[in-house]
């Protein structure tokens, strides 16, 4: 490995760490996601400071030049990373889908409750609004067990048990 290559690798490692640090600082990157890139830069740094490692591995694997080994190694690493990123993206897509569906269901539920209130304020439980099984409520919910601070208006729309108490 030439000195020039070593210097290039060291600069690359430092550059990578700098970008990761900037990402974290500006709240654009989670620490868990940055771990891979930090370890990769450490690896690059080690390889550039101790080129004997690359030379030894290249000889074992039968490469003509150490730099070929470095190419293949990093290609494999990137391939793996790419695969995991695809997997992660799939999971995120799934989560977004879940969220969108839940929001839509909640909107319908909310709208139907409002409707039933508007048409008949004295009527409390509207069975037609309970399309989603998870929003089933027993008619005699114990409101007294909820130690709210005395605020009648619960601004948290996701807590259905307390928001229905406004209707009563």
């Amino acid at each position: 490995m030439t000195i020039a290559l070593q210097i290039i690798l060291i600069v690359a490692a430092i550059g990578l760490v700098y970008f990761v640090a900037r990402g974290i600082r500006k709240f654009k990157m989670r620490i868990e996601d940055s771990l891979f890139w930090i370890f990769l830069s450490v690896l690059i740094l080690i390889l550039s400071i101790f080129p004997q490692i690359a030379t030894a591995c290249a000889d074992i694997a039968g490469f003509q030049a150490p730099v070929n080994f470095i190419f293949l190694f990093f290609i494999f690493v990137l391939l793996l990373k790419c695969f995991y990123t695809s997997r992660h993206t799939s999971q995120l897509e799934n989560k977004v889908k879940e969220l969108a569906q839940q929001v839509a269901l909640d909107r319908l539920d909310h709208y139907q409750r409002k409707e039933s209130l508007a048409t008949d304020p004295s009527h409390v439980d509207d069975p037609s609004a309970q399309t989603d099984q998870s929003h089933q409520q027993t008619a005699d919910e114990k409101r007294s067990e909820d130690p709210s601070t005395g605020e009648q208006q619960n601004s948290s729309a996701s807590s259905y048990s307390t928001s229905s108490s406004d209707c009563r």
Binding site: Q102, S134, T138, K142, E145, D146, S159, Y160, S161, T162
Partner: peptide
């Protein structure tokens, strides 16, 4: 867990995911 909280009237945030 969410069904229990709802049935018992506990104050809770129900994260969809």
């Amino acid at each position: 867990t969410a069904e229990i909280c709802r049935k018992r009237g506990y104050r809770f945030l129900d994260l969809p995911i």
